[in-house]
Design a protein around this nucleic acid. Structure first.
Lengths: 140, 140
DNA sequence: AGCACATATGATACCGAGTATCAATAATGC
DNA sequence: GCATTATTGATACTCGGTATCATATGTGCT
């Protein structure tokens, strides 16, 4: 997955620098969603001497490439999650933070109906689902 | 609508203070979504001497009562919109910021399908629709 | 391999949204 | 009307993210 990110960065025409490689590896090791601060802490623990700004810059690049997405948790905080660069939605475990992507299973119809009722022309949508992942469901 | 807010605050058992009344009126006058800073500026322009903290405190109260909701715009900023206290979703005009509420027109089925595919137990969902409102569509 | 150049870096300072604190003030119940 | 208690505004703070800028480092070229 770190490969995937580096490939995407390469394709995007930016440089494959040391900090970027290291951060990609750190993101790979993460499970579930994470914050910029999490990454920074990871980097700090390993004495990687990576600057705050660099972390945000990489997250921005990755998010432009669709490999990472910023989501807003129900508690108001926000986090980043690694994901596929195609259009999709997220399912987030409220317990452990694990995420999976789900693709449009019928939202088209919903947006069409909403457009009809409101007179709006709908151009974008965002659907976020929150719940318990299979592991957390069976864990207690 | 300001009435509605004041009623709700009353029902919630908090005091109907001057600043709260004034802010409710300011919210009523707003069209589309607004930020805490917008309200603060409105209040400042009218020399109402309302503190920053008070604005945030009221927005929090109203949001607890479901009369206001904080949404994240596609451009990453976030804003508040007045709305009905029932479960619903938002349709936001990308041009003028106007919003309307739409109720679940078939999302249940979508979440059920996503749950089936993923094994998650879905407990909450959030759907946001962005587009052009009827006015902005005809305006150009 | 070496070099020039543009791009990326980390430090620092900054910004904007939101929260904590706290003494002063005002809404409510009696 | 008055005591009580919630609320207020000022101030300082936190936290996520961005701007700046001199220094360092990938990259394309030879």
């Amino acid at each position: 997955m770190a490969e995937e990110m580096l490939d995407a960065l390469d394709r995007a025409g930016v440089r494959l620098t040391g900090p970027r490689r290291k951060l990609a590896a750190l993101i790979e090791r993460r499970e579930g969603h994470f914050t910029a601060a999490d990454l920074l802490k990871d980097a700090g623990r390993r004495r990687m001497g990576i600057g705050r700004a660099t972390v945000f810059r990489l997250l921005e690049l990755l998010s432009e490439q669709g490999l990472v997405e910023r989501i807003d948790l129900p508690d108001g905080t926000h986090a980043y999650i690694p994901c596929e660069p195609t259009h999709h939605h997220h399912l987030v475990c409220l317990n452990c933070g694990a995420t999976t992507d789900v693709d449009d299973c019928g939202i088209e119809a919903v947006t069409r109906e909403a457009a009809r009722r409101s007179g709006f022309k709908i151009e974008q949508h965002r659907l976020e689902l929150f719940g318990r992942c299979p592991d957390c469901r069976s864990a207690n």
